[in-house]
Design a protein around this nucleic acid. Structure first.
Lengths: 125, 125
DNA sequence: AATAACCTACGATATAAATCGTAGGTTTTT
DNA sequence: AAAAACCTACGATTTATATCGTAGGTTATT
């Protein structure tokens, strides 16, 4: 039923989406730039994720190379859905308006959103 | 440092934003519509929230009437910020585009967003 | 006035997540 | 070939959250 990654798991996924693949050590080094937990902590999380099916891996010498088994867009969509329900009582519309208000979009970004809106409208007809 | 409510706390806040105010019992009855935990569980959460400053209260006979001490918009903004950072690597733009893609906005909603975009653009000049 | 039905407060427990220490094995360096 | 430096695996601990049981008091009912 769509198990969602925990915060730490999401951090690992984000690194792997970025790098494409990596050993536990490599993922850890990347995470260590912004937080300071021990290597075995990262390893444990990665092992849990492998057991849960969030990651695949292939042996390489004595170690493993890990890959994300889930697509970033899919996870983002899933988590966004949950978030909208929890925080915006299910109203995507309110979330979007709020996000627009917070952000200071530049002209290009505004136009990108306008293009998206037009596309949605055309699809509808 | 902007302490964010936990999931259960957010549920309580959502009820109080809806009702305006309520006793622990009333909040519990409301929550009981969608989940089934004991009354003392809800009470405990409410007491924690009062201690943390999320709620205010006034005595009423032997009981208390509770009020949210925080505005819905403020909490939403806070939590949205955290969510964008965690899940969309800080890109509001990507979150907005993704949300638009998930949602099936109708014409009115599309126009509401367009109006918001125009407003943002004018403010910029 | 006794009992039932409510209330608050709060410690104890359960559950989930994150963190770490350590054991045991393989490479690499000296 | 001994030592240092890596690796994996996994149990134990810590921390945060959620949940509940129970004690002790007030109000309502019989």
């Amino acid at each position: 039923m769509d198990v969602q990654p925990t915060n730490s798991e999401l951090e690992v996924l984000t690194v792997l989406w970025e790098l494409g693949s990596g050993t536990a050590r490599e993922v850890h080094e990347e995470l260590a730039k912004t937080k300071s937990t021990g290597y075995t902590t990262t390893l444990k999380i990665i092992q849990n994720m492998f057991d849960k099916g969030f990651l695949t891996r292939e042996p390489k010498g004595q170690t493993h190379i890990y890959y994300s088994a889930v697509e970033q867009q899919v996870i983002q969509k899933q988590m966004l859905g949950g978030f909208v329900n929890k925080v915006f009582s299910g109203s995507s519309q309110n979330l979007i308006l709020q996000a627009l208000g917070n952000q200071k979009p530049n002209k290009d970004e505004l136009d990108e959103i306008r293009a998206m809106l037009d596309e949605l409208e055309n699809k509808k007809k």
